[in-house]
């Protein structure tokens, strides 16, 4: 089998000390392979968000190792880790985090701007992704004028614009109604199916989780069960 795109070994995260000590993660070891869709499922407080932050290199574990494509990242300098995040990951957030004063195009090309890409190339790539998500006509709109579904699509466009290997989605449908949720889910799984993007979804929504190939069920900082879907994900 190929080298896993993400793997963890005995991952531990502890918040606080003494009486206020809280073990958010209690020694997790698992692998995520390229092209997989993985759901991290659990109630709030189960440690699923903490796990995602560690996988996405936004936080450092108290103990244990996160390895990206076989390389442990613990030893890397912060600047290098920032660069890895920019190159390798895409993020879709529940609250969108779009800058309301900027246009959709400016918002979604932010990762490229951070990467140091020139303006014309940024805009070209940005328009490409917007067309892919049927958002091209909104490119010049201010982000604040979009509907919830459009905002989440803009957010997905921003996550895709740097052609990431892994797409992290933190409760991607948490702020959306049922119909819009389905559209957004279709987009995410369509990307996974058509472009082979590795998808890591953090959710407490069983329906969304069911669409993933693998489900890691979390409770009190531990993976209690792991489920695999046998059949292909429906479109």
């Amino acid at each position: 089998m190929s080298i896993p795109v993400l793997e963890t070994e005995n991952l531990v995260k502890v918040y606080g000390k003494g009486a206020t000590r809280f073990d958010a993660l209690k020694g997790l070891t698992f692998e995520i392979h390229e092209g997989e869709s993985v759901a991290i499922v659990g109630k709030s407080g189960s440690g699923k968000s903490t796990l995602m932050h560690l996988l996405a290199l936004l936080d450092e574990p108290t103990a244990g190792v996160v390895a990206l494509e076989g390389e442990p990242v613990n030893k890397l300098k912060p600047k290098k880790i920032s660069q890895l995040r920019n190159d390798t990951f895409g993020f879709v957030f529940q609250q969108f985090f779009l800058n309301p004063n900027q246009t959709v195009l400016e918002n979604i090309t932010l990762p490229l701007k951070i990467a140091g890409m020139g303006k014309s190339e940024r805009n070209r790539r940005g328009m490409e992704v917007l067309e892919q998500l049927d958002m091209a006509d909104k490119a010049k709109n201010k982000a604040t004028n979009l509907s919830g579904g459009q905002k989440q699509r803009a957010c997905i466009a921003r996550a895709l614009v740097n052609k990431p290997t892994v797409l992290f989605a933190d409760e991607p449908t948490g702020n959306l109604d049922t119909v819009t949720s389905e559209i957004v889910e279709d987009i995410l799984f369509g990307l996974h199916r058509d472009y082979g993007i590795t998808l890591v979804v953090v959710t407490h929504d069983e329906d969304l989780a069911a669409k993933c190939q693998r489900r890691l069920m979390m409770q009190d900082g531990e993976i209690v069960t792991e489920e695999h879907s046998v059949k292909e994900v429906q479109a």
Binding site: Q83, R85, N86, F97
Partner: peptide
């Protein structure tokens, strides 16, 4: 604050 958090999450270094 949020905007700064987003920029850092998207890979902007502290120096930048």
């Amino acid at each position: 604050t949020r905007e700064i958090g987003l920029m850092k999450a998207l890979g902007m270094s502290s120096g930048k």
